[in-house]
Design a protein around this nucleic acid. Sequence first.
DNA 1: CCGTCATGTGTACGAGCGTACATACTATGT
DNA 2: ACATAGTATGTACGCTCGTACACATGACGG
Lengths: 214, 214
Amino acid sequence: MTRPAGPLPAASPPVAARPAVPAPARSARRHDPERKSRIVDVTVEIIAEHGLAGTTHRRIAAAADVPLGSLTYHFDGLNDLLAQAFRRHADRMSRSYAAAFAQVRTRAEFIEAVTDLIHSDADADSHDWAVAYELYLAALRDPALREVTESWMRTSRAVLERFTDPTTARGVDALIEGLVMHKVLATTSGATRRETHALIDRLVPPAPPLGAHP
Amino acid sequence: MTRPAGPLPAASPPVAARPAVPAPARSARRHDPERKSRIVDVTVEIIAEHGLAGTTHRRIAAAADVPLGSLTYHFDGLNDLLAQAFRRHADRMSRSYAAAFAQVRTRAEFIEAVTDLIHSDADADSHDWAVAYELYLAALRDPALREVTESWMRTSRAVLERFTDPTTARGVDALIEGLVMHKVLATTSGATRRETHALIDRLVPPAPPLGAHP
DNA sequence: CCGTCATGTGTACGAGCGTACATACTATGT
DNA sequence: ACATAGTATGTACGCTCGTACACATGACGG
């Protein structure tokens, strides 16, 4: 066969419709070392926007502007890619969680920081939390993802335990989870900052272990 | 083209391959008035077992032992069926939630009831909670389901408000949600009953409004 | 300057999905 | 007893999905 042998249905004639330059805008991106990482980032965004069920190879490829085959080339199937995306998201959330408490010194500051965490900008965070809930649900059925959720929970618990006892840390962590979830879900405005502050204040025992970390 | 123009690949010849008898054991179930309701129940179970993504017409039909066409006949598409399933589940959960507090009279009993709710049999409930989380997540993207989650939240809040002020009710509700979620997700054993009890006890203000309902 | 080969890409395939619809069946009115 | 209408069912269609894989492509040693 003299022709390229490809059965491409709507291919352009051999005459260059585009400029004669080899391929200016088509597949000109070889050696793109950040591509794999970018794909993972894009995957997180797709999960946030379309949910786990709406996250497909084709959608990711389109959003990341890479060919479809690139996904199966860099990752061992969709599950592998999803797992890496979840892990990256969990890592980022953990870091942000820790950062929220970086400057905290007193009990009052601690309570303030928790309140801030719950009442941070609604829209920016509801995306992030949506991914987190997708992860929770996926982990419920895929034991391989349990490791990610466990590690995340361990991290956040550890952060809180710098300021309070383990039991309280558990409670505060759960209360954050529940309040944020209700806030993200509710169409009517949820609890006010003042209410949240009062609840945390009640849950955290008085004063003793301030800067005293074991 | 003289042929039927249909690209059907392996159509059977007009000769009856099965015995000439009409159909002895095939579709013998007509007039089954509980069928529609049973399909909804089965759908809830399928969601619990396989997740929303794994809930298909075919799987539901097989589990409910009805023909595939029966689903599109009784329901306006899969979304309609799923919505009805979620609504039924939410109703059941609401009733069970209310029942858990039916006998409660004192503050101590209230705290005990909340603790029981969180620490009820792990396996039986994790199925139920899995469905609830699927609902939460679906409601995040489908406004039509918001009504179901809102109504559920309103109901549970109302139950708790029989025993405490609105702010505390919000907090207790969120704490339940968070603790149960962590318990369902964690592979290692979660908080002990004693810990949970202590946390609730701290969150609920002392005594005043006991049997005093407005 | 050119073979050689690892790297990367376009395309096709089989499977499973929701849904539509022609057909079969049964309950009822006469 | 039969015509008829409403109810129910099996099957097929169009579509999208994950994945495989035959081929381009460009870097590089000789």
